Amino acid sequence: MAEPATLQQALYRFLHEETLDGHRRRVCQHLKACRTEALGGMQVQCEACGWEQPWYHGCRDRHCPQCQTRATRLWAERQQEALLPVRYFHLVFTLPHALNGWVQLHPEVLYRRLFQVTWDTLRRFGQDPRRLGGELGMTAVLHTWGQNLSQHVHLHCLIPGGALLADGHWKPSRGQTLFPVRALSRRFRGAMVAALRRAADDGVLHRVTRPGEIDAVLDRLMATEWVVYAKDCLDHTPTVVDYLARYTHRNAIRNARILDIDARKVAFRYTDYRDHHRPKVMRLEGEEFVRRFLLHILPKGLMRVRHYGFLANRCRRTKLPRIRSALNAPRPDTRDASEGRSEPATYPCPRCRVGRVCVLTVLRPRPNRTDIPEHRR
């Protein structure tokens, strides 16, 4: 496994050789400073063997491959309160690659409409009296990457299998799929193309400047099949929330996948889903690796995890108790998780594995201003 500094070195070279917008530049500075003396930290020592080492703070940037483990755990603990004793379904809605250029020009427009159209599609299917005839709940998570760091915009939707009816009863889903995938994909395609046409008419897609491009691309997309994928359903187990958490805080790449970085290239592991899910190794030039990584930095303020229906933050406190009452199910016990968060953290010594480390002194941040090119200060 590559050391964290290797990715920071690649970012350092890219910062000095390429022109980035202010938001991406700030993200790069965060990643480069993560777990270094630039952010400060603690000098720790083992009480048993005397081993001593500085532990530096993380940047906590949501794009950082090193800082999402704790965020994933805390998110999972919070979501335990929303867990229902029902089957869960996992659906994936994918934007065609023909829209990748528009995503780079107008990321806020494309991402927000992807969320809106996906929920509207599922909400209408859930309200259809021929299917469930009630209100769905959904947690949607935006991913923008493929395993090889290419641009692959898709939305993971995790849905409890059933609907809350107007009279307060719960209607469970039937069968191995929540809704027919072919019908979902065609409804999703039509709604997304219509939403993009309205955005173009409103002047929102103003950076798409080639004459006739918008109509040509959207007409071509209406003539092709779009991808909506329904994964195997999940029965209710204590691991359901952990399953959700894997998607909510996943990044384009983790340090564990990086095998080697030399003076020119970066080697990393990936899974080739088109070749029977075979594990492979890809080697990219350092600048190309960083360029692909930067494709997946989200616009500032864009929420990549959203809740809808009876799982929406504004109504889950009232509707989840109604569903549990209809299912005759008790509320999940989350006292252990909350008590665990209140206890002070202690860590075993990574050297002797016997003693515990204690803090000797606090290390002040020591930012290196020479890391920022002069024209960007």
Score class of each variant (00 low, 15 high):
Gln151Pro: 07
Asp219Pro: 04
Cys157His: 07
Arg174Pro: 01
Gly286Trp: 06
Arg197His: 10
Leu221Phe: 08
Ala256Pro: 06
Asp235Met: 00
Ile253Lys: 14
Ala230His: 03
Gly203Tyr: 06
Tyr270Met: 11
Arg189Ile: 00
His276Leu: 14
Asp262Gly: 10
Ala252Asn: 08
Ala263Ser: 09
Leu218Phe: 09
Lys265Ala: 11
His277Asp: 15
Leu284Arg: 10
Val181Tyr: 05
Tyr270Lys: 08
Trp170Asn: 10
His276Asn: 12
Leu149Val: 03
Leu196Phe: 13
Phe289Met: 07
Lys231His: 15
Thr239Leu: 04
His154Asp: 14
Ala245Met: 10
Tyr243Asp: 02
Ser150Trp: 03
Ala216Pro: 04
Ala191Pro: 04
Glu225Ser: 05
Arg254Lys: 14
Val181Arg: 00
Gln176Pro: 06
Pro238His: 09
Met192Leu: 05
Lys171Met: 06
Asp275Val: 13
Ala230Phe: 03
Arg189Thr: 03
Asp272Arg: 06
Arg246Leu: 00
Leu184His: 04
Arg174Tyr: 08
Lys265Tyr: 12
Met192Arg: 02
His277Trp: 15
Arg174Asn: 01
Gly203Arg: 06
Asn251Asp: 05
Thr224Phe: 01
Glu288Ser: 10
Ala199His: 05
Phe188Asp: 05
Asp262Trp: 04
His236Gly: 00
Leu165Tyr: 05
Pro211Gln: 14
Ile253Glu: 13
Arg189Cys: 13
Val227Ser: 07
Asn251Trp: 03
Gly212Met: 07
Arg197Trp: 08
Phe179Met: 07
Arg278Ile: 12
Glu287Arg: 15
Thr177Arg: 11
Ala256Thr: 15
Arg210Pro: 02
Arg264Asn: 09
Met192Tyr: 08
Asp232Phe: 13
Asp260His: 13
Leu244Ala: 09
Ala199Val: 04
Gly161Leu: 01
Arg197Asn: 00
His156Ile: 01
Ser150Asp: 11
Trp170Pro: 09
Cys233Ile: 04
Ala163Asp: 12
Ala263Lys: 15
His276Cys: 13
Arg257Glu: 14
Arg189Trp: 11
Ala195Arg: 05
Tyr229Phe: 15
Ala252Ser: 15
Gly162Phe: 11
Gln176Val: 05
Lys265Val: 15
Ile258Leu: 15
Val228Lys: 10
His249Glu: 15
Trp145Glu: 07
Arg269Trp: 06
Asp275Met: 11
Ala245Ser: 15
Leu244Cys: 09
Leu164Val: 08
